[in-house]
Amino acid sequence: MEKIFRNLSLSSASLVFIILIGIFITLFLASKDAINEFGIGFITNPNWNKEISIEIDAKSSNETIKNSKVNEIEDFNLESDLFSDEDDIMIDDEDDIIIDEDDMLFNEDIKTTFTDYGALVPIVGTILTTLIALIFALPIAMGIAVFLSEIAPKNIAYPIGIAIELLAAIPSIIFGMWGLYYFAPIIADLVGGYQVSLLTAGLVLGVMILPFMAAITRDSMNTTPDVLKESAYAMGATKFEVIKDIIFPYSKVGIIGSIILALGRALGETMAVAFLIGSIFALPTAINSPTISIPVAMANNFGEASGLGESSLFYLALILFVISFTIISIAKLYFLKKAS
């Protein structure tokens, strides 16, 4: 019995390992077509689902190359075609029973047009929305945390603390809806530009991670023992000095951890952003112009895409997964080291 139970628990624990490896491998395999097609240049390519004509005969195509950028991309793709082995094309044919029209053209070696996919726009969108959210949420969350753990008397801090925790539990889709119909119009009035934009998406994302960040930051601050604070007060420190010199240093590891956790959440957040970002595959020209993020690109296009388009979405998923995994693990290992 003992043995059975032990092995059962061991295998359940290993499940975590298997799932994580499984996610990585699955995403990798599913994005293999796109990886082969676009390589690492995918990350810096601003096109998405864009038909590009290849100039065999200068007058034959309507979308002739006008700027050097497209030219470069073409060169890159032609080059990779030369080097890519037959196998890839074979796999294309076998796996995609319903072959995308674009792929068809592409594979048939007529090669007048092909569809180009790149991750630059969603990557930039993801980073910028997260950044805006952090810039907005960080000071307010710190303020709330300090207020709850040090300023407010217990009988006020307790109910407000619970309220904040409950707000952190509200599904993100609610934040998205509220943002679209109530918050974005006001911001658009103030700043100008579209209601759906980088700015409104980032701010709503910020509002969404605010309670979460505040709650866990407060928890970290509360780990500071009362005696430690008292002994600083007993030396004549002001409240601010106690916060700055005792509480922050003491709970530094936890606070930074909280911020990074919130960052991780913001990076992968779909629903709060989906309503607001505009879902346009275009690099934002200003803070109030619409664009798209990786999770939103996935949310809106999965299920409809096929062939190379779907594979490119998996490539996006892989990038998102690797980024968030890296951020969180670096933080964990770094802070674990520091904490011990």
Partner: peptide, 8 residues
Amino acid sequence: MMSAPSIV
């Protein structure tokens, strides 16, 4: 894994 993006 707890913080892995749910869409992934």
